[in-house]
Computed example of a mutant assay.
Amino acid sequence: MPHLKFRGIEKKILIENSKELIDGLTEIIKCDRTWFTIEHTETEYIFDGDIVPGYIFVDVAWFDRGQETKDLVASFITTFCKKLKNNNDTTVIFYPLEGSNYYDNGEHF
Rank of each mutant, 00 (worst) to 15 (best):
F36M: 03
D89W: 01
D104P: 03
F57I: 15
N17K: 11
L4M: 10
C81F: 02
E44Q: 12
T43G: 01
K5D: 15
T43Q: 08
G24C: 07
L97G: 01
E68C: 12
F63C: 03
D64P: 03
K5F: 08
T41P: 07
T69L: 05
G8H: 01
L72M: 10
I29D: 00
D23N: 14
F6D: 08
T41D: 13
G54C: 02
F36A: 00
D104N: 11
F76H: 11
F36I: 03
H3Y: 08
C81H: 05
E42T: 14
A61E: 11
F57G: 05
G24L: 06
Q67E: 15
K5A: 15
I9Y: 04
I77T: 02
Y102V: 14
A74F: 08
P96Y: 04
N86Q: 07
W62K: 02
D32R: 00
G99V: 09
F109R: 12
Y103P: 05
D64M: 01
G8P: 01
S75W: 05
L4D: 04
C31W: 00
I9L: 07
I56N: 01
Y103V: 10
D104S: 08
E16T: 06
P53G: 14
K85V: 12
V52P: 14
D32I: 04
G8A: 06
H40Y: 13
I56Q: 00
L21Y: 06
E98L: 13
K83E: 10
H108I: 15
F47K: 13
N17E: 07
I29Q: 03
I13R: 06
T34H: 03
L14M: 07
I93G: 00
H3D: 06
P2D: 10
I9D: 03
Y103W: 11
G49Y: 06
I28Q: 01
T79S: 15
N87Y: 01
S75V: 08
F6C: 07
N88Q: 14
L21P: 00
E39V: 07
C81V: 07
E107N: 14
E16P: 02
G99H: 02
T78V: 14
E27G: 05
I38Q: 04
D64A: 06
